[in-house]
Amino acid sequence: MQLYEYKIIDSSDVKSAGMFKGKKREDLEAYLNELGLQGWELVNVDFRELEGEFGFSGIMKKAIT
């Protein structure tokens, strides 16, 4: 039986270009791609856009080997 590890993520985990600059689509994509390279798979996500800034919360899973 395969076992999984889970991780809850959200926009606050994403580094942005500066303290007073919002997170852009490219920032979010880079963050999610980095997690994917570490073996994490996004299984649930809630995306939102407010005044040109993107935000999200989600659940990732990774197989335990």
Score class of each variant (00 low, 15 high):
D13K: 06
F56S: 00
S12D: 11
F54V: 15
N44P: 03
S16H: 13
W40Y: 10
E53I: 03
K62E: 00
I59L: 13
G18K: 09
G39S: 07
N33D: 11
E5C: 06
F54W: 10
T65A: 13
W40F: 08
A30K: 15
K61D: 00
I8V: 15
M19H: 10
K24W: 05
S16A: 13
S16E: 02
F56D: 00
V43M: 05
G18D: 08
M60R: 02
E5Q: 14
G22Y: 04
I59S: 03
M19D: 04
E53P: 06
K21E: 08
K15L: 13
D27M: 11
W40R: 04
G58R: 01
V14D: 02
I8Y: 02
G55C: 01
K21T: 09
E53T: 05
L37F: 03
K23R: 14
I64S: 04
M1D: 08
G22H: 07
G58F: 01
I9Q: 04
R25W: 08
F47N: 13
G18H: 09
I64A: 03
E26I: 14
V43F: 02
D27W: 15
G18R: 11
Y31M: 06
L28G: 06
Q38W: 02
A63L: 15
D27G: 07
K15I: 14
